[in-house]
């Protein structure tokens, strides 16, 4: 690991100020960033730890009934909340127990790993990502593999999830990394169904609009029978070809619909 300066502010305002330095990088739970630093894949001049800022931790429900989760809330605490069971179930299967005691929802969304679980929940729920500067709809937030709408130095502070009538996440796990080989989040709202697929596309998490339309008129696994995802732009690696991932994505979508009921 290269040497860097380390700051651990207690308030969001101080963190925002610390992030104005060129090459400063925000550190949340560090479960991806610290291994990246060890491999010298990242070499920031300064790390700004967000784990000491109480105002961006915790879970509550706002006046619109949305579940609001502070960005520095660890996976274990998201898994323990009861306001949004499908989100709790997703969080309870991220990484392993020790990783869930350290990794945070905000860190995961800021990193936007194409195989991470949280992007599927945020996009599949139509969540709002609040930062120190603005609010970003999930539909505008995920812009590509490891890419987001966040600007330099911008810090996620909170994620607001509208709670669906029913929802479920199905993860086909890559057992060595425990990331999703493919994961699908299905959520049924009064005004329609949202389907978000992670782990599959070269562009990162995406919405499967054909499945959303089919499920909108008939919320059953059978409604997906005639649909097929195109595997040509899917991730193809030693763990599975693009066509394989496209196939698994459909199977996971069906299972998620069945689980959501």
């Amino acid at each position: 690991m290269y040497a860097f300066d380390f700051e651990r502010p207690k308030t969001l305002a101080d963190a925002v100020k610390a992030m104005t330095d060129e090459d400063a990088v925000a550190l949340s739970g560090g479960q991806t960033l610290i291994p990246s630093l060890k491999q010298r894949l990242a070499m920031p001049s300064k790390l700004v730890s967000l784990t000491g800022i109480d105002e961006i931790k915790g879970i509550c429900v706002d006046d619109d009934g949305r579940v609001c989760i502070g960005a520095a809330t660890i996976h274990a605490d998201v898994a323990a909340q009861e306001y949004y069971p499908a989100l709790a179930a997703l969080a309870s299967n991220v990484g392993d127990p020790a990783v869930r005691n350290r990794g945070t929802i905000g860190g995961s969304l800021a990193n936007n790993d194409p195989s991470a679980c949280y992007p599927a929940a945020a996009l599949g729920s139509g969540a709002v990502i609040r930062t120190d500067k603005r609010e970003i709809a999930a539909d505008d937030y995920f812009t590509g593999m490891f890419e987001t709408a966040l600007e330099e130095g911008e810090i996620i502070t909170e994620i607001k999830f509208p709670v669906p009538e029913t929802a479920a996440y199905m993860k086909f796990e890559q057992p060595a990394s425990r990331f999703a080989l493919v994961g699908v989040f299905v959520a049924k709202y009064a005004d329609g169904v949202r389907v978000a697929v992670t782990g599959a596309s070269n562009e990162g998490v995406f919405r499967w609009s054909e499945a959303e339309a089919a499920l909108g008129s008939d919320f059953s696994a059978g409604a997906l029978d005639g649909l097929k995802l195109d595997g040509s732009n899917m991730i193809s690696d030693v763990h599975g070809s693009g066509d394989y991932r496209a196939h698994i994505a459909k199977v996971m979508t069906k299972r998620a619909v069945e689980k959501a009921g």
């Binding site: 730890s49 020790a98 990783v99 350290r102």
Partner: peptide
């Protein structure tokens, strides 16, 4: 794995400065 404030975490993936 060690316990930090009662939670099991991987001591190779947390900075000492964060355990102030």
């Amino acid at each position: 794995v060690v316990h930090v404030d009662g939670r099991d975490v991987k001591a190779c993936t947390i900075f000492a400065a964060e355990c102030e």
